[in-house]
Computed example of a mutant assay.
Amino acid sequence: MSEVFSVPQANDDQDPDLARARDGDDAAFTRLVGPLRGELHAHCYRMLGSPHDADDALQDALLRAWRGLRGFEGRSSLRSWLYTVATRTCLDSVTGRGRRAMPMDLGPSSEQAVLGDAPLTEVAWLAPYPDDHLERREAVELAFVAALQHLPPNQRAALLLFEVLGYSAAEIATMMDTTATSVNSALARARKVVARKVPGPTQQATLSKLGDARLREIVHGFAGALERGDAGALVALLTEDVTWSMPPLPHWYHGLDAVTDFAVKVPLSSCGSWRHRFTTANGQPAVASYLRGGGDGPFEAWSIGVLTLRGDLISEVSSFLGAGHFTRLGLPASLS
């Protein structure tokens, strides 16, 4: 991929920090990019499907921007130029790493609970994302980010730059070093895939209609059923076609019978005692699950269950296993 710094951009009203940064003042550069770090990180996450990969990509992008700042000619905004750098950095990264997956991408669902399911560590799994401070939460919803992973990198970038960030096809062509015709073609193909994989309203629309009080009632009902081992209360909250997945475990379950069998045999009976905290991830309600396997020790971080709702029922549970997800979401590693 060609270096981004040949792309002419930016006019930021002769910001004195810009002049200082061009002269090698790294503190001035930090002040310039600071207000944009959050949205650039979210863009990298949407491109790569992993907060950790987004960390690496943003760090690399800002290093490229710092080194190439003298080539920033001032024909459009600094923000646009930084998005160009970040997009091209992500395109370089995703070409080498491939796409992030969910268990549904690997094979058919299991009809009964698989006991002793072992993590599949050779797969690059999609990971949840903290959504505090994000203005457009629908742009990091789990189904949308998962759908993006099925797009070729150029289509993924074009769709995000157009639909999420509002750049024109001509602007995207400059940012991606291609033609407007190619961008429009990529957009058309990408929209078909995303429309097929993300039908219906966004979670933001569903949650807005539901209201905060009812949402908390559902989430606390879900968590309480798990803590009590109450299968009936849990099932009452689920749609008939509910799915439950647990990356990095490869098996997943679809439909009320299969999900109920899994829930009864695994989290409700064979794991131990649970405690839960309400949180959010990917612009959706989530349950942080802490497990105590036995004895009187603390409850240890176990999984972040991102809930997808249809109406006032849960249509999908995506339980991301691993204490590292708790750190990312600002949650404690254990509960007493």
Rank of each mutant, 00 (worst) to 15 (best):
residue 18 L to H: 04
residue 19 A to W: 05
residue 22 R to M: 13
residue 22 R to D: 03
residue 23 D to Y: 06
residue 23 D to W: 09
residue 24 G to I: 00
residue 25 D to E: 15
residue 27 A to K: 10
residue 28 A to E: 03
residue 28 A to I: 02
residue 30 T to K: 08
residue 30 T to C: 08
residue 31 R to Y: 09
residue 31 R to N: 09
residue 32 L to H: 06
residue 32 L to C: 06
residue 33 V to E: 00
residue 34 G to W: 04
residue 36 L to P: 05
residue 37 R to A: 12
residue 38 G to T: 04
residue 38 G to Q: 05
residue 39 E to A: 07
residue 39 E to F: 06
residue 41 H to L: 15
residue 42 A to E: 15
residue 42 A to T: 14
residue 42 A to C: 09
residue 43 H to R: 07
residue 44 C to G: 14
residue 46 R to F: 02
residue 47 M to G: 03
residue 48 L to W: 05
residue 48 L to N: 02
residue 48 L to C: 03
residue 50 S to G: 09
residue 51 P to S: 08
residue 53 D to E: 14
residue 53 D to N: 08
residue 55 D to V: 00
residue 56 D to H: 12
residue 60 D to I: 00
residue 60 D to R: 03
residue 63 L to Q: 13
residue 64 R to Q: 02
residue 66 W to L: 00
residue 66 W to Y: 03
residue 66 W to F: 00
residue 68 G to V: 00
residue 69 L to K: 09
residue 70 R to N: 12
residue 72 F to Q: 05
residue 74 G to H: 04
residue 74 G to R: 07
residue 74 G to I: 06
residue 75 R to V: 13
residue 77 S to Y: 08
residue 78 L to V: 07
residue 79 R to N: 09
residue 80 S to A: 13
residue 81 W to R: 06
residue 81 W to F: 05
residue 82 L to R: 01
residue 82 L to K: 02
residue 82 L to I: 04
residue 84 T to H: 03
residue 86 A to H: 00
residue 87 T to L: 09
residue 88 R to T: 04
residue 88 R to N: 11
residue 89 T to Y: 00
residue 89 T to N: 02
residue 89 T to G: 01
residue 93 S to R: 14
residue 93 S to H: 12
residue 93 S to D: 12
residue 93 S to I: 10
residue 96 G to C: 10
residue 96 G to W: 13
residue 96 G to I: 10
residue 97 R to F: 07
residue 97 R to G: 06
residue 97 R to T: 13
residue 98 G to L: 08
residue 100 R to Q: 10
residue 100 R to H: 06
residue 101 A to P: 04
residue 101 A to C: 11
residue 101 A to H: 14
residue 102 M to R: 15
residue 102 M to L: 15
residue 102 M to H: 11
residue 103 P to F: 09
residue 105 D to C: 07
residue 106 L to S: 04
residue 108 P to V: 11
residue 108 P to R: 08
residue 110 S to Q: 05
residue 111 E to T: 13
residue 115 L to P: 07
residue 115 L to N: 08
residue 118 A to I: 11
residue 118 A to V: 14
residue 124 A to F: 11
residue 124 A to T: 15
residue 125 W to I: 04
residue 127 A to W: 00
residue 128 P to L: 11
residue 128 P to W: 14
residue 128 P to S: 02
residue 129 Y to A: 01
residue 129 Y to I: 03
residue 129 Y to P: 00
residue 131 D to N: 06
residue 131 D to M: 01
residue 132 D to F: 14
residue 133 H to N: 12
residue 134 L to H: 02
residue 135 E to K: 05
residue 135 E to N: 07
residue 135 E to C: 05
residue 136 R to P: 03
residue 136 R to V: 12
residue 137 R to W: 07
residue 137 R to L: 15
residue 137 R to S: 10
residue 138 E to T: 10
residue 138 E to F: 11
residue 140 V to I: 06
residue 142 L to S: 10
residue 143 A to T: 05
residue 144 F to Y: 14
residue 144 F to G: 08
residue 145 V to G: 07
residue 146 A to C: 09
residue 149 Q to K: 10
residue 150 H to E: 14
residue 151 L to S: 09
residue 151 L to K: 08
residue 153 P to G: 12
residue 155 Q to E: 15
residue 157 A to H: 07
residue 158 A to R: 07
residue 159 L to V: 13
residue 160 L to W: 04
residue 160 L to Y: 02
residue 160 L to Q: 11
residue 163 E to N: 11
residue 163 E to Q: 14
residue 164 V to I: 08
residue 164 V to F: 06
residue 164 V to M: 06
residue 164 V to W: 02
